[in-house]
Simulated assay, not measured.
Amino acid sequence: MIQITPSDKRFSAKSDWLESHFSFSFGSYYDEENIHFGPLRVLNDDIIQPGKGFGIHPHRDAEIVSIVLKGQLKHEDSLKNVGILKFGDIQRMTAGTGVLHSEFNPTSDEETHILQLWFMPNKKQLSPSYEDISFDTDNLHNKLLPIVSSSPVENAAMIHQDVTLYLSKLDSDKELHFQQEAGRKIYLFIIEGEISLNSDVTLQKRDDARITDLHELTLQAKQDSSFLLIDLPGGEE
């Protein structure tokens, strides 16, 4: 089954410094039918204005992945990690027993655009930890590039959950094929462009697809496109 959520059906919130679009219940947005998809609990699509950001705040028992699409993101945390991320960098933070961190746009003249995802960990009360990795953006071209995985993958961040995150930039009219084991789930988020799934369903910019009981996909770009694909375990957790 393929369940599509069009981009205009996401909940959105906007202030003078932040524009957010929530794919799952978050903050003031609550929908008991849209809490999570497998262990994927949050996908926030955020635009942060120059010199602004999220002040120091706590997290616990979550695997947090930040993907910078545009601009820069500065991170500081109670583990003494400090870093600036840009496109081509991925951050994974295990909140575990508890961590404090802040995230903000360190520039004076450029918006920062990020995707932030939270996953329920495969074990609670883990020791907090932090990792950032960089990948060659050329390797996104017409490929599924693993950027986060529970299995050891070169140039991919490690995560405490049975998931693998792939990024791709697909040229117009090009195809990619994806296959997973039976009993698992697929989450697909279109970052830019337009993608056809198995010649049956078309997704456009910022649409998502939640896929169950279908373990082989053919993704065809109707125009130059980029997307995030997540291979998730089956079941409710």
Rank of each mutant, 00 (worst) to 15 (best):
L140E: 08
A95H: 00
S102D: 08
A13G: 14
G53P: 01
I159C: 02
L167H: 04
G38S: 07
D46W: 00
E131P: 07
K70P: 03
K70E: 15
P121F: 04
F37S: 02
G96N: 06
Q72K: 15
H57V: 13
D61Q: 10
G88Y: 02
K174F: 06
I191P: 00
G38C: 06
T202S: 12
K124E: 13
S151N: 15
I133N: 13
R184Y: 09
L144E: 09
G51A: 08
D162G: 07
N34C: 10
T212H: 05
L79W: 01
E110M: 10
I190S: 00
I48V: 15
D162N: 14
K222M: 12
Q161F: 02
L43Q: 05
G51N: 09
H59R: 04
I64E: 00
I84F: 10
D31H: 06
Q91F: 01
Q91N: 09
L126K: 03
S168F: 01
T212Q: 12
V42L: 15
N142E: 12
W118C: 04
G53N: 06
F87H: 13
F227D: 00
N105H: 02
E181P: 04
S12I: 12
H21F: 11
L170W: 01
K80T: 12
I114H: 00
N198E: 08
M1E: 15
S20L: 04
Q125W: 10
L117P: 00
S168C: 12
R92Y: 03
I84K: 09
W17F: 13
I2T: 14
S25D: 05
E110F: 03
I186A: 03
G98E: 09
I211T: 09
L170N: 01
A221E: 01
I4H: 05
R92T: 10
L117C: 08
D46V: 05
S199H: 11
D45S: 05
L140M: 11
L217A: 05
N198R: 04
V99C: 06
S199K: 10
E19D: 15
S151G: 09
A182V: 11
H75R: 08
H160R: 12
H177T: 11
L219P: 03
D207R: 05
Q91Y: 03
L140C: 12
W118Y: 05
A95P: 01
S7C: 11
G71F: 04
S226D: 07
I211E: 00
T5S: 09
K123S: 12
P106M: 07
K174T: 06
G53Q: 05
G27M: 03
N34P: 04
D8I: 08
H141D: 14
I35E: 15
T5R: 11
W17L: 07
Q220N: 13
Q179V: 11
F104L: 10
L188A: 02
D77T: 07
T107Y: 07
A156Q: 03
G88K: 04
V68G: 01
P233T: 05
F37L: 08
I48D: 03
S25M: 07
K143S: 15
